[in-house]
Design a protein around this nucleic acid. Structure first.
Lengths: 198, 198, 198, 198
DNA sequence: CATGAATGAGCATTCATTCAT
DNA sequence: AATGAATGAATGCTCATTCAT
């Protein structure tokens, strides 16, 4: 019985989260009210408050959902490769591809990260939210092990990780007409290789 | 007469903008109301509406102010150098230094860019607001002319510009205790040099 | 269940409308704010916005309510009469009586008609709001059928309708001490009869 | 010196009043703010407060101006006629013609009469504003003297005056496409003659 | 006589949240 | 589990008025 109810509850929660993502992508964080989300999900406002302890809780859960989607996609691609060089290349490729194909998800994520704040008013983009960003952990691991296995040369993995992730994020502000995502991907990889080469 | 009055108005506008920056940095865009700004500036809410046509107008002007501060600082440093190699290095150095010493200004800028929207609901971070980001123009110029003068090797200036600016932005999320800004700056420069070397 | 809830909502809407009428009659349209109406109804301001989409919507509904009250009263009296002559006389009589006994309602109606504007800024008193004024339709019908049945003589029903309704409206500005409503009613009827006599 | 200043002041007052009339006709009383009037007149808001003791004072003066314009026009026409019958006919004709040619003025007048209130919150349309409406006095005089001179039959001049003025006011809500003002004028006169005939 | 800076109150509206049902 | 009625606070904004210059 509890199981069944829990299933219903879980489905409801996901339904609400998906409605939230849609709203965030379309109208942005600060126009996204609980009642607009409720509208999109065809449920009552009160029901959201029943399933989430408040707006902040909903946003935190939505963010976790979005992060998990991206992480799973990229991790899946990386695990299919053997060498760290390949893993690194596919990490960059997959990251850019995910951003390219899931504009809405990415917009929603940005809206939350740059707008939501913890109860003590720290913005998410500065907060050391729970466990350290898992994609960063993955990337640093690739770089570190690539050095250990002598595939890569000498560099500070933490710094290079930041540079790579910066380059990926920056792709968002690419002038879309001048440079295709594929070209950008290729060129970024080439540049990164120069940085990590022996 | 007009001059004097205009000076008063200009001073007021700057006072309001500075109060807005403070508020943005402290409590974030979506908690920053006109009345909180007015409070900080010790003036009435209505006076803000008298000097700016609305909240959006105030935010746009605040953004312009912030961008101009940063641009002036960095451009000043760059112009003191002769070779493009030096110009590039000081561009990165100055950018990171500015971010390090003006956390509040940078936070305020981010809050606006990622939260404000044009009247037709396009977020600033996607909108092709006014002329293309002037710092980007400056950076691309350095890279381009450095290639022409044979100081730099072969690469796509636009892509490298994005990577560099991504690395600079990403410095914001540096784990502050593990790596000093100076170290980061040095290491970034070293990595960048690898990318642009002949 | 739905029925019960809907009844609650309907009762609330009528309560709000009645509070609006009171406020309009007492302090006039442009001093009648939602919060003053809320105060009169002992509810919160937000609740008005919950039941009506905005001030204009509330005013439109209030106007419809007022018009319907008057129409129902007069139409009821008219239907009790057989000949068109009698119908016409009772139309005038009832109109004046309604105005006399429901000063507040009539004031509220005037306040709305002469102050409210459609979203495109057309005043209600010029706008071809919904169907043509139903009382006018009723009056013109009486005049027209009275001509057909040879009870009345020859005249333009539309013009006479305007004159009659003008005379009724003008009663509002009667110097109340010099001439009683009953006397006025009687004299108006006598004059009107002269106009429509064969 | 005083004379010259007074002339300037008078011109200023008229300029402000004319700007007010324009604003009232275009956007209605409740959207007409002092600053919008000031804008139209190309002067500062404060100057209006200098020449009029407040918004109510300005509106009262604007109303007086409008009433005087209409009164002068109609009285001029009436005085050119000799018999009371002719005077009556031209009174109606001129009233309707004035309304037809001065829509803006008439709209402004309505906006004031139905929106402005005395300091003790009595609406102008109910207030026994200063001297009794001068056009009403003129009309009653025509009717009364016409009876004395045996041109007209027996009726209550006050009641007939109200009816006539009601008919004139009602012309405002004439369906403009179906009936021309000239036709209406002619038909009204014919009907009125029936009422006052011996 | 005229300006423009400034105030403070009031406005309609939206929102997150609560609660009885 | 779910609804919809209700609250009270907050928001951006406009306004009539005042006042030093």
């Amino acid at each position: 019985m509890e199981n069944k109810q829990s299933l219903i509850a879980d489905a409801r929660r996901e339904q609400i989260i998906k409605a939230a993502i849609e709203a965030l992508a379309e109208i942005g964080y600060h126009n996204t009210s609980l009642s607009k989300i409720a509208n999109k999900a065809n449920i009552s406002t009160g029901l959201i408050s029943y399933h989430f302890s408040g707006k902040e809780d909903l946003m935190k859960n939505t963010l976790m959902y979005l992060v998990e989607q991206e992480r799973a996609f990229i991790k899946g691609k990386v695990e299919q490769k053997q060498t760290y060089m390949e893993k690194l290349m596919v990490f960059i490729e997959a990251s850019l591809a995910y951003l390219g194909t899931n504009r809405g998800y990415n917009t929603a994520l940005l809206e939350i990260v740059f707008n939501a704040r913890t109860p003590d008013n720290v913005p998410y983009y500065l907060a050391e939210i729970d466990d350290e960003d898992q994609l960063n952990v993955l990337l640093k691991e690739i770089l570190y092990k690539g050095q250990e296995s002598k595939e890569f040369g000498d560099f500070d993995p933490q710094v290079i990780a930041i540079v790579i992730r910066g380059a990926i994020s920056a792709s968002m502000s690419l002038p879309q007409n001048e440079l295709s995502l594929e070209d950008y991907s290729e060129k970024i990889i080439k540049s990164v290789l120069k940085m990590i080469k022996e």
